[in-house]
Write a protein that binds this DNA or RNA. Structure first.
Lengths: 109, 109
DNA sequence: TGACTATATTACTCAATCGTTATATACTCA
DNA sequence: TGAGTATATAACGATTGAGTAATATAGTCA
């Protein structure tokens, strides 16, 4: 990536990161990695209140990360953008690398 | 990534995303992609106040993203974790993909 | 040492956002 | 239609974080 990113693009990227910067939203996304879930399912699985889950689902959907499907009384959400898992993976790898280096430094002192 | 991420790990990932969720910090990182810069240089290049830049530099350094080198009166910062550029790239690609699909949908309606 | 420069820190204001409680909306089924 | 269930929304209190202005710290050089 040698591109010269404009401020506008960086703003959009920041917005995307902001959406992913909430533990509960990450938990929701991670849960949905197991496939489509209803709001009730999610509410139980992520152990949060229903209004709170609904609010975060809206944020994730507005960001284009989730797909919404209504069936009768229930609403089902699923992952619309798989790139988020790549992002999490890259972050996890970087964090592991960092911890490994810190451990190395500690061992030498 | 089929791993079952614990809440603790997701919290750490969220923290990392939070660090990257500020336009000014992204601008600083992007500027540093051109190589090590002093605080004064950065302050001019990202067009922000010196105290503000210093504050964000501290946040980025605490997160392990930047390396700090002091030479006399000046302090030089450089990228310590290249993975951030991968992250930005993945986000940019996803945003482009999304826009492309939206354009396609508009064209058919 | 004293003036100057570079960087960091503190105290403050303002805006954004999380989670909660209460309530609204909308679908289903008897 | 009316009761019951599922989801969304509104209003609120509390916290967090960005940017600024003022100041502290620390290095350089005459």
């Amino acid at each position: 990536m040698k591109t010269n990113l404009s401020n506008e693009v960086l703003n959009l990227v920041a917005v995307r990161f902001k959406v992913l910067a909430e533990p509960l939203r990450l938990r929701i996304l991670h849960t949905l990695q197991g496939g489509e879930k209803s709001v009730t399912d999610l509410t139980e699985m992520v152990e949060a209140s229903q209004p709170n889950v609904s609010k975060h689902l809206k944020i994730l959907q507005d960001a284009g990360l989730l797909h919404r499907r209504q069936n009768g009384n229930a609403v089902y959400y699923s992952i619309a953008d798989e790139s988020i898992f790549t992002l999490c993976e890259v972050v996890c790898d970087a964090l592991q690398e960092r911890l490994k280096n810190q451990a190395k430094i500690l061992a030498f002192e």
